[in-house]
Design a protein around this nucleic acid. Structure first.
Length: 554
RNA sequence: GGGCGAUUAGCUCAGCAGGAUAGAGCGUUGGCCUCCGAAGCCAAAGGUCAUGGGUUCAAAUCCCAUAUCGCCCUCCA
């Protein structure tokens, strides 16, 4: 609807210019808003005021010219008014409103999809936690945000690939092997001082036990170096398998797990550095190689090869992003923890040095989660390895509640996650509010069928019977759904969707409490059943994008 | 010290390519089940949009300062 009105206004302005009532000018971005006040119409635009300074005319006069030039070919408009300092207020006629529901009925599960992306290939990289320990609560938010951004883009006509980058080439891998090694020594009765830089978590001991039982004989024979690399390999692949299981339980399936080791094969990183050096982006200082990221606005240059000859993580990351583009992605989205924000300028420097437009890379920062239980902070410490794992959260509060709660805030703002609240099946917990609306709709439809009503489709009902104020509101909200998804796709902001589902559920609950759907009036009952069915479709589609179930009953 | 981000109702937060009387949830107070699901609905109270300046017809939204809080300032990842 907003699109139609935008189009109408654009045409009207051009007509106005042709007629000489308006000066020729660039038409700015036309914003159509839904006013709070019903008296201000169903939609409103401030375009006349936007044009005022360029036109050197009273905005109300401009609005008049525009309104007079509107050609309402589809007969959508009941009336158009000019109000206040120059707002143009649109009142949509009842008949046109309700005909919009045909589209929902026709598209059903596809309502909300679009071709915005035109098949563009997009990669979303997220989670990417080191395989040195199980996923914990800190990873969970980024995981859901990445997954839902991927779902939004899929819905909007992009070809999306979800990718997990496995940091399995660095120092921390040796530390992992060493950690397991010391725990095994401990288990076999030797007295050891467990090094503080090693991973302290309980899970290392569990791994050590498993290995001890399974490889009892082999362990004795292996030489120390050989043994550590064996332990590293065993531990990391076992941990990674666990990570995959947890993610699956959270509703997240990756298309690709990309190992950092891949980048070093065939000397990939070295070759890239050589190329960049020839292009003048890299200089040498002693044995150290520096990337001139300050050329691209970074605050200081960054090391890509250390004094000891080892490439840094940053060097591998440039190669990684080059690799992504080489694989044919038009656009790459990275989901990072907000503590990495200082890393952004150098990543963009890398992208530019590769000759890529900065538009090709979007970096989404996800802020930290404050884990609470009944309002009190839950103590966690990476040093001692005490943390609440993702699996524990899923087991305790459930996938739906966890996902929904993680999505309710803007990614870039802190989030309180209260375990007790998320678990509670009460009005304090927003997931249930929305799911309840869906279950309630299903219940009404079941009841109707029991009483002999077939659930009607658009052509079978007299849609003009839906003439209540609340019904108009419902239609309006339903109609806003595709626009909402498009906006979420453009801005990469998943949190808009929970706000929307909450809003739709609220309008529906209110309608339900005030009006009976099933009544003695056959025709009215059919019309309302149809309306309620469309609400159910939208709720289900919206929850589907969030990866949250839409229960038939609860 | 430098950089980035935040500051909106008692609490947790939306709104921010400037627009009409600043919103939601929770909490508080008071109502609504002989009737399709009360995990619901209705109503009320609650605000100097951190502070001070600026830009203009119009600022929560843009600009500049200040304050407070958080994160980052590894040849770690």
């Amino acid at each position: 609807m907003k699109k139609k009105l935008t189009q109408l206004l654009k045409e009207a302005i051009h007509h106005g210019i042709e007629k000489g009532e308006l000066k020729n000018c660039e038409v700015p971005f036309i914003e159509i808003e839904s006013p709070r006040e019903n008296a201000h119409g169903d939609y409103a635009s401030n375009i006349a005021m936007m044009l005022a300074s360029g036109q050197k005319k009273n905005p109300r006069k401009i609005a008049e010219s525009i309104v007079n030039s509107i050609e309402d070919r589809e007969e959508m408009l009941e009336s158009v008014e000019i109000a206040g300092p120059g707002f143009i207020n649109f009142f949509i006629n009842q008949k046109f409103w309700t005909t919009l529901l045909k589209e929902v009925d026709d598209l059903a599960g596809r309502y909300g999809t679009s071709d915005l992306g035109r098949g563009e290939k997009v990669q979303v990289e997220f989670v990417s936690a080191n395989p040195t320990g199980p996923l914990h609560i800190g990873h969970a938010r980024g995981a859901v945000v990445g997954d839902v951004i991927a779902r939004i883009l899929e819905t909007s006509g992009y070809k999306v690939s979800r990718e997990y980058y496995i940091n399995d080439a660095g120092n921390q891998m040796n530390t992992l092997g060493k950690s397991v090694y010391y725990r095994i020594l401990e288990l076999s009765g030797e007295k050891v001082d467990f090094p503080p830089e090693c991973y302290q978590g309980e899970y290392i001991i569990d791994l050590a036990k498993k290995i001890q039982i399974k490889y009892e004989k082999e362990l004795d024979k292996k030489e120390c170096d050989d043994l550590t690399s064996f332990l590293t390999e065993y531990a990391s692949s076992s941990i990674l398998a666990g990570i995959k299981d947890d993610l699956r339980a959270f509703g997240i399936i990756f298309d690709c797990y990309f190992s950092e080791k891949e980048l070093y094969k065939n000397n990939g990183v070295r070759k890239l550095l050589e190329d960049l050096r020839e292009a003048g982006f890299i200089y040498k200082e002693g044995e150290t190689l520096w990337f001139r990221t300050t050329d691209f606005g970074d605050e200081k240059d960054r090391v890509v090869v250390r004094e000891n000859g080892e490439p840094t993580y940053f060097a591998a990351d440039i190669e990684y992003h080059k690799n992504k583009f080489d694989r044919g992605f038009d656009r790459v989205i990275d989901i990072w923890g907000a503590d990495h924000h200082g890393y952004i300028p150098r990543m963009y420097a890398g992208i530019k040095a590769l000759g890529k437009d900065t538009q090709c890379l979007n970096i989404i920062l996800v802020q930290l989660v404050n884990l609470l239980r009944d309002g009190l902070p839950v103590a966690m410490s990476t040093r001692t390895g005490e943390f609440v794992t993702l699996k524990e959260v899923i087991d305790e509060v459930g996938k739906d509640a966890a996902r929904y709660n993680f999505l309710m805030r803007r990614s870039n703002s802190h989030l309180d996650f209260d375990l007790e609240l998320a678990k509670r099946q009460s009005n304090e917990n927003p997931v249930y509010y929305v799911q309840y609306a869906h279950a309630r709709i299903k219940s009404i439809l079941r009841m109707a069928e029991e009483r002999g009503f077939a659930i009607p489709s658009y052509s079978e009902v007299d849609i003009s019977l839906l003439d209540l104020e609340e019904e108009r509101t419902l239609v309006k909200v339903i109609n806003g759904f595709p626009e909402l998804i498009e906006a979420s796709a453009r801005t990469l902001e998943p949190h808009r969707i929970p706000f929307y589902t909450n809003d739709l559920a609220s309008v529906f609950h209110s309608y339900y409490n005030k009006n009976r759907v099933i009544s003695d009036n056959m025709e009215l009952t059919k019309a309302r059943l149809f309306l309620v069915k469309t609400v159910g479709i939208v709720l289900k589609n919206a929850l589907g994008i969030l990866g949250v179930s839409a229960p038939e009953r609860m």
